[in-house]
Design a protein around this nucleic acid. Structure first.
Lengths: 193, 193, 193, 193
DNA sequence: AATGAATGAGGATTCATTCAT
DNA sequence: GATGAATGAATCCTCATTCAT
């Protein structure tokens, strides 16, 4: 008994199922069938709504990016002053509720798999660009000319901590990971002054 | 025209072909057939010598690890004093000739795919353990009690720079990447003194 | 042109095709592809419905056993008295319509191939147990203490006649085969009295 | 270091390995590679000496038949009188040392697989003809006109006991199997008198 | 709106067989 | 006399995708 207005519900369920399945599998080597079963629908429906497997995966990647963007924006809204903005940006990536657990594992897989897909790469550059520009904006008043290098270093460190968090069997403490990044940034700021 | 003593030659060719193919594909989603064709042999031969696809991929991973280990050991041999050792460890990862180009791309894929395979995970922990212990050994005289945190931070930063090097379309300058890591380490050492 | 409710139809067609193909090949060395083609479907569908080759073969074996069981039960229903029951049991095996022709050839292959497969062996022991208990039940009033040996001998003779029927190029007369078994049983019964 | 005169040794080793392997596998689904390894030679040598897989299997079948023929001939040589000849024929099949254990298992597989191969079928008919003529020859003085039916029944019973011996997990007592056949024959003889 | 039915394409793997040495 | 090297062909199986309902 299909009902009206199911589309957004099904789409959301499929996106969540995709993220969960990728995280559970630990790789993008997931089947549309398994994703659909996890979402409680037929695989045909996944095609109906998303067009194909690649589109579904990209939509899931975009979904994660949207969650991330929202978390950062929210954190920045309450931040006062450059140092507080820095704090908000870094912690948002690690601590946002929606961004913990399986999402990180899925994200990493998308991240790496982007190598092969131009469409995924374009999505990635959105994330990288946004992160860099946020960091840069907050760092400029603090580190002046060295803001660029500092932003690049911090961004790389964030990615490295992500990869390690996703891969280590023991759930790493996200708060401690953010501390590491901020400590490095503080050192760089102090050195530049 | 079968000749004698081909085994080591074929094995080496297949390992190189595996690394190249993984790097070219940008994922572990490669077929044994393509790897074999790249190596100039039939896919049956790949199975004959390695047993199966997973074994072949693991052997390639192990091969990269061996190259990396050799590069680090060689660099450490000529290093005098803790700071020079640090330099050697970090630069070896980025600059060793054998470790440039496609190898990094392949490595990253193995790295991430390790999530699913216990055997790959064991291999990974060899690399992580070796890197951490090398860094720790060199950092202890310089950073004292903070050596542990510094080593973790440096290791994560290295991974992050790897991931970005592998993903950025433009070939990143490996020397500049090493500089970033060493700069951060120097700041941490100075702060700890 | 997919229609609804095809599953039972396809399953039945695949089971029949399996039996025919095994009989035609004279061995279990048949391919899923050939079975599927004979059933008029793709090999993928055979996997979809049965899970795999072994499951398909086992299902076919079970199917034959079901036919056989039904034939025996039907024959026993109309049998009055121990001697008539004996007659029914023996003739059912040889004369049941569903049990003639290719089915015997297929059965024999399953029978022998059971050596290697525990699951097939379990299925076989169902047949052997059923046959023995049927014979025993009818023989006890007639042969007393010698019923056990008589049942074993008759069961072995039945198997031997099967094997020869399946292997001889000329179609053996099933009625005459049943006569041979019953003659032996009558002799044993008379000797025991 | 190949030596001269190895051919008969290698051939015998390969035949024995074939029989053992078929018995161990419980089916004719054995690889030339495994047979060769069991014989301690390369698979190429098996082809060199026998031409191909089918030839090797047929040679093994013929080998078993030769062993069987020898055992019967030897038993018949010491048999005095028709009843003793009967005894010798039946017991030879079950008790000949060379014909116990794995050989029966292998034999059964050859026996059934003969359905598909005309060459194997010809070999089989040698066995069946020999057995029937031996039985007939001994039965004629004892059963007169009923010798034909008696021989057929005994032959089928022997085959049935073989199949059960080969398939039952517990090693059946070969002496008791022979007794069953002889008991039936004695009953038929007595009934015909 | 949703799915059961069905398949084509593709991939890992196995194996008999060949050949130069 | 014997084998290591190598492969083509075949087979099982999986999966994304399509389509009628």
């Amino acid at each position: 008994m299909p009902k009206l207005g199911m589309e957004p519900i099904r789409r959301a369920a499929l996106l969540k199922a995709t993220i969960d399945e990728v995280a559970a599998a630990g790789s993008l080597d997931v089947t549309v069938g398994r994703i659909a079963r996890r979402a409680g629908v037929s695989s045909a429906l996944a095609h109906h709504y998303f067009g194909g497997k690649e589109d579904l995966l990209l939509a899931a990647m975009r979904h994660i990016l949207t969650l991330y963007g929202g978390a950062v924006r929210a954190a920045l809204a309450g931040a006062d002053g450059p140092r507080a903005r820095l704090d908000a940006i870094v912690r948002a990536g690690f601590e946002a509720e929606q961004f913990s657990g399986d999402v990180v594992g899925a994200w990493l897989n998308f991240y790496v798999a982007a190598q092969g897909s131009p469409r995924a790469q374009r999505l990635l550059s959105v994330y990288q660009g946004r992160l860099r520009s946020n960091l840069l904006h907050a760092l400029r008043p603090l580190a002046g000319a060295r803001a660029g290098v500092a932003a690049d270093t911090a961004a790389a460190l964030i990615d490295g901590l992500y990869i390690r968090a996703a891969l280590s069997p023991a759930k790493a403490d996200p708060s401690r990971a953010a501390d590491k990044v901020l400590d490095v940034l503080d050192l760089m700021i102090a050195a530049g002054a």
